[in-house]
Every structure is written in C-alpha cells, then in structure tokens.
Design a protein around this nucleic acid. Structure first.
Length: 875
RNA sequence: GGGGGAUUAGCUCAGCUGGCUAGAGCGCUAGAUUUGCAUUCUAGAGGUCAUCGGUUCGACUCCGAUAUUCUCCA
C-alpha cells in the first residue's frame, strides 16, 4: 500500500463507522500562547474536552500535521540520527466526544490494523494501565478484558502511570490509555528475544504505533480525581510509523513518504544514500535531516509562519538552518538545495494538504531566500575563523567559539568540524558555560509567573457581546489569577459576558473600565487564551462576587474599527490592482494605523499605490453599509466567494463581513464600522519589503490620515515659503542644488589659489639651521584642513625640511609640524616635539614622527613655540 | 522581551592600541591599443565614514542615544 492509500483507508474506515472527517488544523498555533505549534492531534479539540465548547458532531476523525522540536526524545539535534523521530509528522486520530468508549475504540483499532492493513497479529502487543495507588486507581481491567478477545494474554502488558496514563496538564481531563506496539524485527531476532521484553524500551523496531486514550476523569486543583459525566476517546497514530509497519520497512525513511525525496537528493548531490544508522555515517544522517526538515519548514510557511528571529519563526529558521548545515558540511553542497524539493512535496501532499500546492511558488521563494541568507552567514563565519589564524594543536577558547555562534550565527558543530579538519580543538566546556550564562540572562528577564485560576462563579459559558454592546451591566467574574511580570503584579479576569474585544485577527484588544460597586478598575488590555477572553487589570476588585458594569474605551474602539474596515477594503483593492495572488500574511490594526503584510513579489509602483488609495477612497465615499452575517455555515461562506486565509482555523460556522458583495467579503471575527463613510479618508504611508515575496503597507484613516497629509502639506508650504512661493518648487530645489555644487567647486579652487599664494611668500622665508631647511610661520585665515594641505604641498616643494605652521584663529591656536621622513630621528620626532612646544599655547597634541598637530587656547604662545623648535634643531 | 555585532565610494569590503591629506577590488567616465568586440594600459570622477550628542588639542576609531540590519537566547 502506498502512503496515500494508507491514509485514505483510515478515513474510509472511520467514515463508515459514522465519523466526520475534518481537515487538519494549522500546524502553527495562533490561539494558545503556551503552545507555538500543534504537537498532537487533540490540540484542536481541547475545548471540547475542557467543556468550553460543545462539538457539532460526536465522532470525528482526521489527520493532523504536527511539529515537535523539543521533548524527551525529540530534541531537534536528535532528528535524523535514528529511523523514527521527526520534526513534522502526521497524526491520524479518531475521537468520541461523549459518544462511544473503550469497546468500540479497541475493536475498531484492532480491525483496522489487522483486517484493513493486514499487519501480522503475532507482532502486535498491547499495553494497559496497571493502576496507581496514590491516585486510588485500580488496573484498567475493562480495557484488558476487551483486548483478550483479540490478543493472547502474553502479548498484553501492564505499564504504570508514566506510560499509560494521559493528562492534558496539571489539572483537567485525563484518563488511562492503551497503546498498540508492533515488533518489526526479523524472525531470527524475534526468536532470540521476545518482543514482549522490548515494548517501551526505545528499540527502533519495537515501536508504539497507536495510542488510545480513555478520558474518564477530571484532575482537580488539589490533584484528586473526579469521574467525568461524559467520557471521551482520544486516539493518535503516527502516520509515518504506520507506513513503515504496513510497507514492511525497518525505517520511516524507507517508506514512500521519504524515498522520492532521498532519490531526488541523490541526483542533486551525486551521493548515494546507504541507509546506515551508524553515528559516523554523516552523509546518511544528512539525507535524513534534509528530507525531514524540508517538510517541517514547508508546512509551517504554508500556514503563515515565516522564518524570523523571534518566537515561532525562529524555531522554523533553526530547523531550516540545521538542514543547510548538514548539506553544507556532509554533502559538499554550497548552493541552495532545499527549495528544489518543493515540487515533489507539493505533488505528494497536494491531495491532502492543498495549501502546499496552491502556495508552492511562495514557499519556494521563502525557502530559497532563507537558504541564501544562511549560506552568506556561513561564509562570513568562515572568513572570521580564518582571520583568527588558529595553529595546529591550539584550543579555541570557548569565549571566541561562543562569540562566533552568538553574534555571527556560525554553528558550533561546524566550528568543531573545521577544527577537526585543521587540527585544533574547541574548548567545549567554556562554550557551554557561555551558552548557559546567556540562557540564564534571557530567562531571568522574561520571567513571568502566572498563578492558578481561582474560580469565583460557575458559568455555563463565556460570551462576547461586544459586536452589539459597548457597555453592559450585571456581569459576573468567572475566575481570576495573579500574574507576575518583572516584579509587578497584574491580574487576569474572566467574565461571564463582556463587551471587551480580545486581541485577535490583528485587531488590538479593547481597553476600558470595570465598575464594581464604588470601585473603578482599569482594563489595560484584553487577550485571548484559546476561547477564554482574559481582561488584564492592575488591581483586583474588593468584592469578587459583586455585579459589574463594563464599558470599553469607545473612541479607541471606533478608531480601530475604521482601520480594520480599511484593511478589508485595501485587501480587496490590492487584489484588483496587483492580482489574485495577493494573500494576507499578517495584519495589525490599532487606533492609530493599520499594518498589512501580503504576498507579492515586487515593489509596488507609485501608480499602483495611487490606484489602491483611489479605490479605497471611492468605496469610502460610497458610504457602503456593513453586511454582517453571523453563524454562516462554512460551506455557504466559501460558495459566496469569501476570502479564506491559509493557516487560519475556521469553525463550522463563521462570521462574514461584507462591504459591497461584489467587492469585499471576508471571514472575520473583528469589529467594523457601520458604513464605510466613517473612515473619512484613507492614505498609504509606506510600502516596503519584509521578507522574500512579502510586502508591508502601513496606512492611516480618519483623523490620523488628516494629520498625516496635513503634515506633508505644511512641510511643503514651509519649503515653498523659503523660496518665496514659486510655481515649480522641485525645479527651484534642483537649481539650487546645482548652483550649490558649482559654488563649492569654485570655493575649493579659490582656497587652493589662496594657499598657493601663501605658499609662494612662505617659500621665501626658509632658513637653514644646523644644515636643515627650516620653515616656520604664523598664519591666519585658514582652517585645519587648509593648513594640512598647505603644509604637505610645502613639504613636497622643499623636499627634506622641517615645517612648523602656527594657526591663529583669534581665540584658539593650532600648531602643525611636518618633518620629512628622511630627517626623522630620535630627536627630530614631530610627535615628541609638538608635545613639548604645545605648552606655550596651553594645549596638547601628538601625531606621528613625521606629522603632528596640536591645539591650545593661547595664540600669543605661537612665537615661543617657534623659538623653542629652532633651539631644538640647533641642538 | 533580553544580550552581542554591523552600518566607510554605485557594489563587496580593508582601515590594528584615537594623529598617515580615508584606501582596495569590481563597476563607471575619458584616452590609448583594436576593423569591431573582448583584453590590456593610462588618467579621472565618485565619500557630511548611518544620524544626533559627548569626551579630546585632535574622533572613521572612545562613550551615550536613535534608526536600520544581522545574530543568539527566552
């Protein structure tokens, strides 16, 4: 079976059992601040388990794209070494939300694996929870009994809490789980050691393929367990491992998920993949690293996460760079390579994940640019390393190695590798110390401690009423917690209903006031955590259970709405002017301005910018009324031509915002004006590039647009005023610039004429002392630059000579001493002499042995300085 | 969010512990060589050393702030 068939068989099987097949959630997580990437199939259903939301259907199955770069065995640096760990992987799963339970989950799992996929039964082992005394839990005999229908006793194993009890977090839904493991070792080895001995022992060929979680408890804050009224099923099956088992290979990398990529790499690099897992088989590791990482990077970019230097974007950058590092070091490749694999990826995943295919060009461009950038960084690092001139047998200090890594991004393993080749070492301990130090520094700064949620009022739901109300009464606090940020306490409140909009979709969170009895509490910000609306306040109400009236900062909200609506209008206008390839890549909307990032491959021309402004301003003048439809089924919205964004997770029902159905329809949870007229005026402030293929526009509306254009007009008026209000200002400025340049030229020729005039009269003042030509003079009306030029030109004409020029500017005095190089000696050292004679002008100085300058505040001393110089020359 | 670096000619960069009249290569312009192109040679133009402020007799160089950018960490 091909991988695509295996995946399809899974869907078909569960669809037949009444499951709804849903699309994968984006791999990039946008709603949960504690999680950057989706790392398990259940992430998108978390709210169902928590009871924050009720699912539309009770049986669901899907494949979820996941990304893991940290954890017990999934450190990024480990991927590629073995045969079965990945950064990006697919997780097949089936779910029951208060519907079927252990019986069905177990029998279906068994049927799918053995009947549909035809896995040999005698190689399958199952594990069940053995119970836990401290939690007062008995062994999961229910599951064990169910398994006995299919599996003989000797292949049913019991494991403890660590392996077979699943918890979502410190509190919340949890329950025992049951895993299916498969033993893929050759018969010879199986006959020597039973697979039974190797389950959960990290053997690469005896691996878990499916985890069935039976969610039946709720872990309370005091760590006690409570039976749930509704029981759930949550399963997860690693797709890559499943393919390995079904296709009978001994490594995930030998399945057809990876072999086409390895083959392509062989052709590109000219090296053969030998499939060795020895730590010395660097080339093979490199192959695996590349074919693994290209998936992670591409999926993340497709869902909108561009490589960057902070947060989730930095994780993606690190993954990509690790792949580059490997082909650079071990496959002798100095040119971008990863981007060439994209057509293949699109071909393979297109049917399941259309976002890869439809954005192929964009992803390719991003990856190519990122590769180029890092190859440049590597080159810079190599150059720097060369400059250090490390000798054979030396040890490169940890400090320098760390500097190379930290400041210039030169990977430490590459430093070590080069050292190995050139016969020097790196002080690893020193490096690790420096790294630990930096981590500590960063961590101590970012320290943010959030306390536990404290429940106040039991509410069925948490409702946002801010589309229709800007203030509301009779609100109750559901829960609160204390958060410590940089030694300051702030507080988070969750209300049962609220007019406050939580930051989302680029629109900033509302601010405003909560009134509780006589107490007024400021809301500093409103943020979203999954589906909770969290109000950030600077103090807690004294009466937690009192009723609250909440009112938001209305003018701030209205200005923000202007900019949000402008974003929609501009998005539509951009697609009209530039083309349908324009896709939103990021957006920020606040009360002052809007910032919109979108995919487009070249700089916009001034005309295009003007056109976009024109279209938007026309739509503003048409004063189009907002069309707002809540709870539109997603299918219907799609059919009406609403713009959908990649990397955005849409629910079953969506909110649709329309300004002229033939112009702008977007799915959006944000706040918008009633009619476009309130935007007043729209003006683009800047258009720039922020990444390969991504442009950014900053624009303003209403008051800010007026202020901005007014500022420009004032500035122009000021310039015009300076020119006595001419008809054509730019011509005036151009002329002035030209005239200025001509004058500058003239001035410099006049100066040099003047200097040469001085030169002639000075040449006649040369005297000979002790056999040396000496010229000393006091000069006025030159600057230091002129003095230097004069001095050098005198020296050139006089040849071997000593020249001392004193410059009197009235308030200050400067000395310049030139001694022809042939004459310099221990005594005739310009620097030493000038230091001595500068005392006369009450100053100091210095320079080289043949040229020195000094400055001071006593012009009358110049004569004395000249006299002293003569004495020195006389000896 | 925190740390470290970078910013010098159109481009890529050099400029050590403050003092060489701020340099190199490529590119550009002109001339010579050549039937023409390529090549080679010669000459030349091109810089508020990111911006602002400070220390100093003197700042591309040291210090501070700002901007842009790279990089590491969270």
């Amino acid at each position: 079976m091909k991988a695509n068939e295996i995946r399809k068989a899974f869907f078909d099987f569960f669809e037949k059992e009444g499951h709804k097949i849903v699309p994968s959630a984006p791999i990039v997580n946008k709603n949960d601040p504690s999680l950057m990437f989706t790392n398990a199939g259940m992430n998108q259903f978390k709210d169902f388990f928590l009871g924050n939301k009720v699912p539309e259907v009770r049986r669901i199955a899907d494949t979820q794209k996941c990304l893991r770069v940290s954890g017990k065995h999934n450190d990024l640096e480990e991927v590629g070494i073995d045969s079965y760990h990945h950064t990006m992987f697919e997780m097949l799963g089936n779910w029951s939300f208060g519907d079927y339970f252990k019986k069905e989950a177990i029998s279906w799992a068994w049927a799918l694996l053995t009947d549909v996929y035809g896995l040999p039964e005698d190689r399958l082992y199952v594990s069940v929870f053995e119970g836990d005394e401290s939690d007062g839990l008995a062994p999961d005999e229910e599951a064990a009994a169910l398994w006995r229908q299919f599996v003989p006793e000797d292949r049913i194993l019991y494991f403890d809490k660590k392996d077979n009890f699943w918890e979502m977090g410190d509190t919340g839904p949890c329950g025992p789980c049951s895993e299916i493991h498969i033993d893929l070792r050759p018969d010879i080895e199986r006959s020597k050691v039973s697979g039974r001995e190797l389950v959960n022992m990290d053997n690469p060929l005896v691996v878990e393929i499916w985890n069935l979680v039976f969610i039946q408890f709720n872990r309370k804050a005091d760590s006690s367990l409570e039976e749930l009224p509704e029981k759930h099923i949550d399963t997860g099956m690693g797709f890559e491992r499943l393919c390995m088992a079904v296709q009978g290979t001994t490594s995930n990398y030998d399945t057809d998920l990876f072999t086409p990529f390895i083959k392509a790499l062989e052709e590109e690099t000219g090296f053969q993949y030998e499939g060795s897992y020895s730590l010395d088989a660097k080339k093979d590791i490199a192959f695996r690293v590349i074919v693994d990482h290209i998936r992670a990077v591409s999926f993340a970019v497709a869902d909108g996460q561009l490589p960057s230097n902070t947060g989730a974007g930095y994780v993606i950058r690190r993954i990509l760079r690790r792949a580059v590092r490997y082909y650079y070091s071990f496959l002798d490749c100095r040119e971008p390579l990863l981007f060439k694999l994209l057509p293949l990826l699109s071909e393979q995943f297109g049917p399941v994940f259309p976002e890869l295919t439809s954005q192929n060009e964009f992803i390719t461009k991003i990856i190519l640019e990122e590769e180029k950038g890092f190859l440049r960084t590597l080159e810079g690092g190599l150059k720097r390393l060369n400059q250090l001139n490390i000798n054979d047998g030396d040890t490169l200090s940890g400090k320098i190695a760390f500097e190379l890594y930290d400041t210039f991004g030169f990977p430490i393993d590459l430093t070590r590798l080069i050292g190995q080749e050139e016969g020097w070492q790196v002080d690893n301990q020193g490096f690790e110390e420096a790294l630990a130090e930096q981590k500590e520094r960063s961590r101590s700064d970012a320290r943010k401690e959030s306390g536990d949620w404290i429940d106040v009022y039991d509410s069925e739901k948490v409702e946002f009423i801010g589309y229709d109300h800007l203030k509301a009464d009779g609100i109750r606090i559901v829960k609160y917690r204390t958060v410590k940020v940089k030694d300051k306490n702030i507080f988070h409140l969750v209300l049962d209903k609220t007019p406050f909009y939580a930051e989302s979709g680029g629109q900033v969170g509302d601010r405003g006031i909560l009134q509780i009895a006589d107490q007024k509490i400021k809301v500093l910000d409103t943020q979203k955590e999954n589906d909770l609306i969290v109000h950030h306040v600077d103090k807690l109400p004294t009466q937690m259970d009192a009723q609250i009236s909440a009112s938001i900062d209305i003018s701030r909200r209205q200005l923000t709405e202007n900019n949000h609506t402008a974003t929609h209008l501009m998005h539509a206008a951009l697609r009209k002017v530039l083309g349908e390839h324009v896709q939103q890549r990021g957006s920020l909307v606040n009360q002052k301005q809007l910032r919109f990032d979108f995919s487009h491959f070249e700089k916009m021309t001034d005309e295009q910018i003007e056109q976009v402004e024109d279209i938007v301003n026309t739509k503003i003048r048409e004063n189009i009324t907002r069309g707002e439809h809540r709870n539109v089924p997603i299918k219907e919205a799609q059919e009406s031509g609403a713009m959908m964004l990649f990397g955005e997770k849409y629910g079953e029902y969506v909110r649709m915002i329309t300004f002229d159905p033939s112009f702008s329809i977007e799915l959006c949870g944000g706040c918008h004006v009633r009619a476009t007229g309130s935007l007043g005026y729209f003006k683009i402030k800047s258009e720039s590039a922020i990444a390969a293929g991504v442009r950014r526009i900053e624009a303003v509306t209403a008051v800010e647009a007026y202020k901005y254009t007014d500022g420009l007009i004032q500035e122009l008026a000021e310039v015009k005023g300076l020119f006595k209000n001419p008809v054509n200002v730019s011509k005036q400025v151009r002329d002035l610039l030209e005239a200025n340049k001509a004058l500058e030229k003239e001035l410099s020729s006049v100066r040099s004429e003047k200097a040469s005039g001085m030169k002639d009269s000075l040449m006649s003042q040369v005297i000979t002392l002790n056999g040396i030509k000496v010229l000393t003079a006091k000069i006025e009306g030159l600057d230091m630059e002129g003095l230097k030029t004069l001095g050098y030109s005198l020296e050139k004409s006089l040849d071997k000579s000593v020249i001392l020029l004193g410059l009197d500017t009235g308030e200050k005095a400067n000395l310049m001493l030139l001694i022809s190089k042939e004459l310099t000696s221990e005594i005739l050292d310009a620097s030493k002499i000038i230091r001595k004679i500068a005392r006369h002008i009450q100053g100091g100085g210095g320079g080289q042995s043949f040229f020195a300058t000094a400055g001071g505040k006593n012009p009358k001393g110049i004569e004395h300085a000249i006299n002293e110089l003569r004495e020195i020359i006389k000896g």
